[in-house]
């Protein structure tokens, strides 16, 4: 297979400033390999990510959306990520109840020390999205 034939998904990734962004940074400075599919967006806390932003990315054709934050108990704002988890579960349920592919959405806790984990999450999620193929919203005009 030619290199161009491999489907490189577009994955929007929210990284919280205090843990996950540093984790992603560490993955970079440690020169860990992970796919170029990730488009990072830094936010101050995972709880800043309104489900609407995730939905918007999905409807605008991103093949996957990854939300990352500090491990539970480690949020810089004490409890932000507990709220993130509740919202995320609700968001997935809305997707499921309408028959949309909620597998394209993922929530992961990545600490500042977990460069390895970040690279792994990015790689595995990209793989998963490859299996799912392109997001069908990409070809829909009447959204």
């Amino acid at each position: 297979m030619k290199k161009d034939d491999i489907f490189l998904p577009k994955i929007l990734t929210f990284l919280c400033n205090w843990c996950s962004y540093a984790g992603a940074d560490l993955a970079g400075t440690s020169r860990l390999q992970y796919p170029a599919s990730i488009l990072p967006v830094r936010v101050m806390c995972s709880s800043r990510v309104d489900p609407l932003l995730i939905l918007r990315a999905f409807l605008n054709g991103f093949d996957g959306v990854l939300v990352t934050g500090c491990h539970l108990g480690d949020c810089h704002y004490q409890e932000g990520n507990y709220y993130t988890r509740r919202r995320f579960v609700m968001l997935k349920k809305v997707f499921d109840s309408l028959g949309l592919e909620s597998d394209r959405l993922r929530l992961s806790w990545v600490s500042a020390a977990e460069g390895q984990k970040y690279a792994k999450v990015a790689t595995e999620f990209t793989q998963k999205i490859r299996e799912l193929g392109e997001n069908s919203s990409k070809n829909k005009i009447f959204l």
Partner: peptide, 13 residues
């Protein structure tokens, strides 16, 4: 929220 809940949505990685 509860501290111990909804773990199914967290990443398995």
């Amino acid at each position: 929220y509860k501290e111990d809940e909804l773990h199914e949505v967290e990443d398995v990685h």
